[in-house]
C-alpha cells in the first residue's frame, strides 16, 4: 500500500476532525483559563501535549518513510515566510494571551459550552476580513517566502532522526522544568477548578441556573 492516500473527502475530514476535537477536549483545551495557564507558568499542559504530539507524528512519519510505506516528500510541508511566519506567530500568541484561545481550541471551547469562545470566533472572522481588506497593501511583504530549505534536517544538513532525537531532549528538559514551575505557581487546573470558575460566573453575573445549583467557591 502506498501512503499517503490523498483522501481529502468529506468522510476523512469528519473522521479525523472528530478525533481531533475529542482529544483536544480531553486534554482540557476547551478551557481558556487552562490554556492561558501556560503563559502564567502554572499549567504546562499546552507545552507538554503539543510537544509530545509533534514528536509522535514526526517519528511516525520518519518510520513510515524509512520503511518505504510513505512516499518520500509525500506530505505537505509549510514554507517559511520571511516576515509572515514569525509576525503571525507573535500576533497569534498575543491574541491567545488576551482572548484565551487559538482557532482550533475556540471550536472546542464553544462545543464545551463557552460563550467567550463564540465571541473569539466572531473576532477571528473580523480579523480575517480586515486582512483581506488590506491584503493589496501588506500582502507582498508578509507573504514573501524565504529562499531556504523548508525543513530542519535539510537546513542543517543532518538526518531527520537526529533532529527528532534533539527535539526529544528539548521536550524532556522542558517537561521537567514545566512540572517544577507548575508546583511553584499553583499547579495545572483540574476539571473541578475549571468548572468552579464557571460556577462563580453563573452565581455572580449571569444567573445561570445550572451554575448556581453547583456553585462551589474553593478556598473560601
Amino acid at each position: 500500500m502506498t501512503l499517503p492516500l490523498y483522501d481529502s473527502g468529506a468522510f476523512s475530514a469528519l473522521f479525523v476532525g472528530f478525533l481531533f476535537g475529542w482529544v483536544l477536549e480531553g486534554a482540557g483545551f476547551g478551557s481558556a483559563r487552562k490554556l492561558t495557564g501556560q503563559f502564567l507558568l502554572r499549567d504546562w499542559t499546552v507545552f507538554k501535549v503539543m510537544f509530545t504530539a509533534v514528536l509522535v507524528a514526526a517519528f511516525g512519519l520518519w518510520l513510515f518513510e524509512t520503511l518505504g510505506w510513505l512516499a518520500p516528500d509525500g506530505v505537505f510541508v509549510s514554507q517559511l515566510l520571511v516576515v509572515g511566519t514569525a509576525l503571525g506567530g507573535l500576533l497569534i500568541g498575543a491574541g491567545f494571551a488576551i482572548g484565551g484561545y487559538c482557532p482550533g481550541t475556540s471550536a472546542v471551547g464553544l462545543a464545551s459550552g463557552r460563550l467567550d469562545a463564540l465571541f473569539f470566533m466572531i473576532g477571528m472572522v473580523i480579523g480575517s476580513a480586515v486582512f483581506a481588506a488590506v491584503f493589496d497593501v501588506i500582502g507582498p511583504v508578509v507573504s514573501a517566502e524565504a529562499q531556504v530549505s523548508p525543513t530542519l534536517p535539510e537546513f542543517f544538513g543532518v538526518p531527520a532522526l537526529a533532529v527528532i532525537l534533539a527535539l526529544t531532549a528539548v521536550a524532556v528538559l522542558g517537561w521537567r522544568l514545566g512540572s517544577r514551575l507548575e508546583a511553584r505557581f499553583g499547579g495545572p487546573l483540574g476539571v473541578e477548578q475549571v468548572l468552579a470558575g464557571l460556577a462563580e460566573e453563573g452565581s455572580t453575573r449571569r444567573g445561570e441556573a445550572g451554575f448556581v445549583e453547583r456553585a462551589v467557591h474553593p478556598a473560601e
Binding site: G99, G123, G127
Partner: peptide
C-alpha cells in the same frame, strides 16, 4: 475574547 480573536484571525492570515 473578541479583541483577541481579531488579532488571531489577522495573524493566522499573516502566517
Amino acid at each position: 475574547a473578541l479583541f483577541g480573536g481579531v488579532l488571531v484571525g489577522f495573524g493566522a492570515r499573516v502566517a
